[in-house]
Design a protein around this nucleic acid. Structure first.
Lengths: 213, 213
DNA sequence: TAGATTGTTAATCGATTAACAATC
DNA sequence: TAGATTGTTAATCGATTAACAATC
């Protein structure tokens, strides 16, 4: 079965559906409709129906979806049941916080270890994960077939670290450094950029103040 | 001068432009072209030109933009020079990390204080910021005219906290809890959702594995 | 059967890209 | 003048929304 290709927008909504289904109090019915999800999340119902269609085909007219079944299909689609190994580079404040972040396994992410250039940091632990010196990066990645790299180093070092990760076989980079990373075709960079969020918040306030009403 | 309205996509790219301009080594020229920015960030040049047009009108054919001038215009547009006060609710691990995050002021965000229900936490400090008991929430918000609220409480409490923030005059909510928040028209919720990022990473790997090549 | 719901097909909307005129 | 660059107008593309047929 080929994995269906979905748009980025769809992919951004699916986790919210899953979370809503899980958090919803066990109702009298085993069923849930796309309409109900749409209403709860403030979305158009056709959007929800289309999104669900790319993940499941168990929806039945008049009744909707079996809640438990849909949860399973979403989890499978999002890869929550298929844990991926990752490594993290840059064990500063943020890096350590992520190493200790204990909900990642629930989302299918398993951080094997952290890496840091600072010899005082390498050798220590965070969240029960070892922090290793940078020299071990390539060998660990290759040995374990690591495909996800998390970058939490200062901006100036990010591109260099990224290049080393890719050379070691990493195919997806989660970038917390506030710089643009250049990567070869086929490698994904997912930026986690607080500056962008702040810009959106600030712009909203500016527009609100601008209104006369 | 009315603040120009820009699309969300544009707003997401502007911080990257600014960061690139700032990080770019002082070249021989005072000028920078949209084409050069586009190339460095892997974007289409017309997109960059359109984005810049909504922020600046100082671009000149043949020469481009004066780098320093454009930096100033971007900073002003993004509100980096116009610091906004914010409060944070939920002083757990993540909350404390954000309270200590010392780059926010550079992006125009000033966190006044944290709040927490736990009496053992209220009264302590993080990053030099006081953590206050929840009872003081409304009075502080009203007194200081706080318009940004940061939510780092567990999911179950997020909606309740959100309602209290809005009742206290908050107009923009930065939500780190993995739940959908319902807010009245005119209030913005910006979700910082790691589950979404993980879904995107995981989906990329799935599609890569799916390819035969 | 009637009503609720799914899922599809067509219409609309908005963003990106392409083409080009203006200008230093 | 020629070339590089801006900024605008038109064409394309993709996502959302609307309309509707299918079905339990």
């Amino acid at each position: 079965m080929p994995s269906r290709s979905v748009s980025k927008q769809t992919l951004q909504r699916l986790p919210a559906f899953l979370h809503y289904l899980k958090s919803r109090p066990e109702g009298p019915s085993r069923y849930i409709s796309a309409t109900a999800i749409a209403e709860a999340l403030g979305l158009n119902d056709v959007v929800v129906r289309k999104d669900l269609a790319s993940v499941s085909s168990s929806g039945r007219p008049k009744v909707g979806y079996v809640r438990e079944e849909l949860i399973g299909e979403l989890e499978r689609f999002l890869g929550y049941d298929n844990t991926q190994d990752a490594i993290l580079v840059g064990a500063g404040k943020l890096g350590k916080a992520l190493l200790s972040y204990d909900v990642f396994p629930q989302y299918g992410l398993n951080i094997l270890a952290g890496f840091d250039t600072d010899p005082r940091v390498a050798g220590t632990e965070a969240g029960g994960k070892k922090i290793l010196p940078m020299e071990k990066l390539e060998s660990l990645c290759r040995r374990m077939g690591v495909r996800i790299g998390i970058i939490t180093v200062p901006g100036e070092q990010a591109q260099g670290v990224c290049d080393r990760l890719i050379a070691s076989g990493v195919l997806a980079v989660w970038n917390f450094a506030n710089v643009h990373l250049s990567v070869p075709q086929g490698v994904l960079v997912q930026n986690e950029n607080m500056a962008v969020s702040l810009a959106i918040l600030s712009n909203h306030l500016k527009e609100r103040s601008g209104t006369t009403k």
